[in-house]
């Protein structure tokens, strides 16, 4: 029993799930099954996704944030490093619509320009963590036994270390450069993906078609990457998407602690540099924070939507 309503032993077809929505009438003739043509999986997926209002909202928000980041600079060409007004000019001023920071730089320009770095750090750190996670998780899940045990110990080790503290150490030891920050975030945040990949591999490697490929003489590497990985990919892709969100939060946290790359404008950096003047100029911290919040929220909504669309059974939750 996996749902709130117990399914009794009489089947109740959920109207939301039957593609043909013609009114159902008691049929006087024999109780034969009306053949229902199953839709193509991609179509079915798109339909399920489109029915999910919050997923659509997420998609719209995400597109909006992308537009702000990649098209915005062409329409709002103010230099984010240049002093345009008095320090702490409140929003609605003549020179800076969203106010200025502690040295008079335009907050809107910072937000418009800083998105690129924030998204880039998020995406590349997430990519690194997902690649590490998939490698470790797939090997552990595929081989099992002592290899699995050893790799899971390593995973456990990284889960026990507070990721942020380790990343703080790495960045402060190796310098607050964009590359260091990306690598540090990637290195400390892979364990969850590894666990997910491992679980998927353990499930799939027992399936018949894997056994068939093995009998046909496929090598392990081929089995892992060409046979099992494609089947394990959908949930991992969702996880990768969500990892972008957490990497963005991570980068913001590092910047807030003064460990952002001071030469690259990012949303976190604006907050980090202005946080001491928070009570004099709330907008310097609030507005970039909203940008981060909306972006991560959009990513979560879309990720959840994809997840639900991939698992129709959980859809009614």
């Amino acid at each position: 029993m996996t749902d709130a309503t117990m399914e009794p032993d009489i089947a109740v077809t959920d109207p939301a799930q039957s593609p043909a929505r013609q009114p159902r009438q008691p049929m006087p003739d024999k109780g034969m099954e009306v053949p229902q043509k199953p839709a193509h999986p991609v179509t079915e997926f798109a339909r399920a996704f489109a029915r999910n209002q919050s997923a659509i909202l997420g998609l719209v928000l995400l597109i909006a944030m992308f537009a702000l980041t990649f098209i915005g600079p062409f329409f709002y060409g103010v230099d984010p490093y240049e002093m345009v007004d008095m320090p702490f000019a409140p929003p609605g001023g003549d020179y800076a619509p969203l106010g200025t920071d502690y040295i008079g730089r335009d907050i809107l320009a910072g937000i418009v320009t800083g998105g690129k770095a924030t998204l880039a750090v998020g995406a590349s750190a997430a990519f690194i963590s997902v690649v590490i996670g998939i490698l470790i998780g797939s090997i552990a899940g595929f081989f099992g036994g002592w290899i699995d045990a050893a790799l899971m110990k390593v995973t456990e080790f990284f889960q026990i270390l507070p990721a942020l503290l380790l990343a703080m150490l790495l960045v402060s030891v190796f310098g607050a450069k964009l590359l260091t920050i990306i690598l540090s975030i990637g290195i400390v945040s892979w364990p969850q993906t590894a666990r997910l990949a491992r679980a998927e591999f353990m499930r799939i490697r027992k399936l018949d078609y894997v056994a068939a490929a093995r009998t046909a003489g496929a090598k392990n590497a081929y089995l892992i990457f060409a046979v099992i990985l494609p089947a394990a990919l959908p949930p991992l892709i969702v996880a990768a998407g969500l990892a972008v969100g957490s990497a963005i939060l991570f980068e913001a946290g590092l910047s807030f602690l003064g460990l952002g790359d001071p030469n690259v404008m990012s949303w976190g950096l604006i907050i980090g540099q202005n946080r001491n003047y928070l009570l004099d100029a709330w907008w310097t911290v609030t507005l970039p924070g909203i940008a981060i919040f909306v972006t991560v929220l959009a990513i979560s909504l879309v990720g959840d939507g994809i997840n639900d669309a991939l698992n129709p059974k959980l859809r009614r939750r």
């Binding site: 077809t13 008691p26 006087p28 109780g31 099954e33």
Partner: peptide
Amino acid sequence: GMVPPLGRFPKACRFAP
């Protein structure tokens, strides 16, 4: 044959088919 699914019961005798 099979028990007809819910909502497709014959109108008269349900076992008739």
